[in-house]
């Protein structure tokens, strides 16, 4: 508990964590507002989501870059160091002299990240779904109780993505590579999606499988039920985090 409190304090003290919060809140909200406006203006346009059933949810799949930044920052801040004789130095030294059990340290770090990512996901989902329903007015597909599991799916997707980004950064000990890879894949070119054109197996990569938890219309030949998608993504996360933890426990700080 003490270690968890310390990790929450640490996370709240780095600027990139707040950048993550802003990105996670603003990006899906803004895109959803634009899309909702476009949808109500020209409903017949169709596109990938003619029924509007994924309105807001598509944007939330994209807004996950907020927690990518959060997960990366939580790990890379431990290893960040400027030139040789700075007043600072790598935080991992201070972290492990304060909490020497590496298992406890990792658990506290993951715990703080899960709490922060879940809170961010809840807030962002509420804002994004609201704007995606309010702007189109009568054209909006109304939210029903059947959408509740989808909301849970969004939260799970964000939390698992944060942990994936975190685990990857623990391995690389630097934020640049995971940030570039994960953000490019989410926003500019979805390499994982392109891979599904090569092999249907790519549908089981974590981001694509996980998105099945809440996105309903997929241009894909492979059917994965929401729960199965979540399980696949969780398995990926567990595996990657397990490898990262094993490496972290053995190597010199």
């Amino acid at each position: 508990m003490r270690a968890l409190r310390a990790e929450l304090l640490k996370l709240s003290g780095i600027p990139s964590a707040w950048v993550a919060v802003v990105v996670g809140l603003v990006v899906p909200f803004a895109v959803a507002a634009l899309n909702a406006g476009a949808r109500s203006a020209g409903r017949a346009a169709g596109g990938s989501d003619p029924t509007g059933v994924d309105a807001g949810f598509q944007e939330l799949a994209f807004g996950v870059i907020g927690v990518v930044v959060l997960g990366v920052a939580a790990a890379s801040s431990e290893y960040f160091a400027e030139g040789g004789d700075s007043a600072g130095g790598r935080q991992i030294t201070a972290s492990l002299t304060a909490v020497p059990s590496r298992v406890r340290f990792l658990a506290a770090k993951a715990g703080a990240l899960v709490l922060a990512a879940a809170a961010l996901a809840v807030l962002s989902t509420a804002a994004t779904l609201t704007v995606s329903r309010v702007v189109p007015g009568e054209f909006a597909a109304p939210l029903t109780s059947a959408d509740a599991p989808r909301v849970l799916g969004v939260v799970a997707y964000w939390v698992l993505t944060a942990l994936l980004a975190h685990g990857l950064t623990l391995l690389t000990r630097g934020g640049v590579v995971p940030l570039v890879v994960l953000i490019l894949n989410t926003s500019v070119v979805s390499v994982t999606y392109l891979l599904t054109r090569v092999t249907p197996l790519a549908n089981y990569l974590p981001d694509l499988a996980g998105a099945r938890m809440f996105v309903r219309t997929f241009r894909s030949s492979v059917e994965i039920p929401p729960l199965a998608g979540g399980v696949v993504m969780a398995a990926w996360t567990l595996a990657l985090f397990g490898v990262a933890a094993a490496v972290f426990l053995r190597r010199d700080a």
Binding site: L9, I14, A87, G89, Q91
Partner: peptide, 21 residues
Amino acid sequence: DGGGAHRSRTGRGHLRWIAAS
């Protein structure tokens, strides 16, 4: 060596999380 304070934190912020831990 460096002391391990993240450069973005304030001195007090650094000590506060250590105290909490």
